[in-house]
Design a protein around this nucleic acid. Structure first.
Length: 460
RNA sequence: GCCCCGUUCGUCUAGUCAGGCCUAGGACACAUGGUUUUCAUCCAUGCGACAGGGGUUCGAAUCCCCUACGGGGUGCCA
């Protein structure tokens, strides 16, 4: 194991944003690639917004994505506690160090960090007020993605709020020092704040970690400006869970947001991602999320699955639609699914595509109805083929095909004359899986019943 | 306002560090055609970008400067 130590520090305030998931993933990927340690640290200092349910949800989502942690909640570790709400003694201790060094002062009940340098006041447009500023020496941020970035802090900032809670910048740096964090990978929104953090490292006499600021995930321009927010469509991992996306597809997709492997391969398992991952290949500019590409990746994974695991993954969507239940015969389910796997690009579309295999109460497509059942001679076609099919003893694809061919020869037509109307009678639509296998799977009795029913219904 | 980061097809990106191999490659999307005598699969083809301007150079997507545009920060949020 290398000495690389990275951490992911989410605040458990509800659902998991796709950008949060990406930050977790990139930290995890880096730790695994380097043989380092991945720490999960919970930023739960805001008591009103943090709930135990939200924390459970967070852990559940991480596990669903296949992200595990070496230190943190439920995993333990030598640098705990891993909840910021339980680290007050440590914060007090570190605050004392700064106070002893003469780097703090109190104002309005809060504790501020005192920058070093010449002081002056200036009218600031942003604050719309005269503010005190400091000409502090620039600090250099060593960033694996952006190179060296120089920036100077110009205002003292809050360490401990007037209600006694330590603030983000302070907790962040103290925890990273105390936990021996070596690399900090986070969103670009923290780049400007990093000069505060380096001021703090310097004040503690600690060596800053190596930083890597990842590009922002941007909102679809049609929806507005700026970074993607939790309210935007596609922004929440939970949405993909509900829509029965495959976790490996979600992981693959978010890994490709702001990063690309050198060899250009796009469909990558989490092992292959780990193997190829390199911070040098992370993009500098913001990335926009494309649901179509996400679906495409999902389909690629759906096609790669064995029929057994495909069936396992398909069940939730089919059960939600009320088409299958625990009693549904697994062999039948798999034979239906074997027809769908190559055709259908998402589990959320599976129920509408396959409903008629499980229920007689399937929807009737009006366009298909017009093109088949309501056409001249449709009933005759059904009446011609039904007895032929009924007389088949061994209901196999080959025998079914033979029945159609024999009839077609007798009538001097092509089997195609019967296919569409039969497909419609069985499925209520004019599209679906390959025709003959579909009949075989549906079974003889159901086929005959539906043909008779359709003939009756459109007889007048 | 000030500070920081960025800018290659509609989108994700390769190429930029070490300038010529780039008439800029791939993927998704889209369009057309084909296969599947169904289709949402599959195959083929097409469409489509170096933000603009100036420099440096024999030569610039690649290096430098300016402008424009985008993003972020500037919170007793994280």
């Amino acid at each position: 194991m290398s000495n690389v130590r990275v951490r992911f520090e989410p605040s458990p305030t509800g659902s998991v944003h796709i950008g949060t998931a990406r930050t977790a993933l990139f930290n995890w990927l880096y730790a695994r690639k380097q043989g380092g340690t991945f720490i999960l640290r919970i930023a739960d200092t805001d008591k009103e917004r943090n709930t135990p349910e939200a924390l459970d949800e967070l852990l559940r989502v991480l596990r669903w994505l296949g992200i595990d942690w070496d230190e943190g909640p439920e995993a333990g570790g030598d640098y705990g506690p891993y909840y910021q709400s339980q680290r007050n003694e440590i914060y007090k201790e570190y605050l004392q160090k700064l106070t002893d060094a003469g780097r703090t002062y109190e104002k309005d009940g809060a504790v501020f960090f005192k920058l070093e340098g010449e002081r002056y006041t200036e009218y600031e447009e942003y604050a719309k007020a005269e503010v005190e500023k400091v000409r502090a020496a620039p600090v250099v941020i060593k960033d694996l993605i952006r190179g060296e970035v120089a920036r100077s802090e110009e205002k003292d900032f809050v360490l401990v709020r007037s209600n006694g809670d330590p603030g983000f910048h302070f907790c962040n740096v103290v925890d990273d020092i105390a936990m021996g964090v070596t690399h900090v990978l986070r969103g670009e929104d923290h780049l400007s704040n990093t000069s505060k953090h380096i001021e703090l490292y310097n004040a503690f006499g600690a060596t800053p970690p190596v930083f890597a600021h990842m590009p922002m995930l941007l909102k679809d321009p049609k929806l507005g400006k700026g970074k993607m927010s939790k309210r935007d469509k596609g922004a929440l991992i939970e949405e993909y869970q509900e829509r029965n996306f495959l976790p490996q597809a979600v992981v693959n997709f978010i890994a490709l947001l702001g990063w690309a492997p050198k060899d250009g391969q796009e469909v990558l398992s989490i092992e292959e991602l780990t193997d190829r991952f390199d911070l040098k290949d992370v993009q500098k500019s913001g990335a926009r999320f494309d649901e179509k590409k996400m679906s495409h990746l999902n389909f690629e994974y759906m096609k790669l699955m064995s029929l057994e695991s495909y069936a396992v993954a398909a069940r939730p969507a089919l059960e939600k639609a009320g088409l299958v239940n625990a009693e549904t015969d697994e062999t039948y389910l798999q034979s239906v699914l074997s027809l769908c796997q190559e055709k259908i690009d998402s589990f959320e579309n599976l129920p509408s595509f396959s409903a008629y295999f499980f229920s007689d109460a399937f929807a009737i497509n009006e366009k298909a109805e017009k093109k088949t059942a309501k056409k001249e001679g449709a009933i005759e076609r059904i009446q011609e083929i039904t007895p032929r099919l009924d007389s088949i003893e061994d209901w196999t694809e080959a025998n079914i095909e033979a029945a159609f061919n024999t009839l077609a020869e007798e009538k001097d037509l092509k089997p195609f004359a019967w296919y569409p109307i039969v497909r419609f009678a069985l499925s209520g639509t004019n599209s679906g899986p390959d025709f003959l296998p579909m009949l075989e799977v549906i079974g003889k009795q159901t086929t005959i019943d539906r043909l008779n029913k359709t003939a009756e219904k459109y007889a007048s």
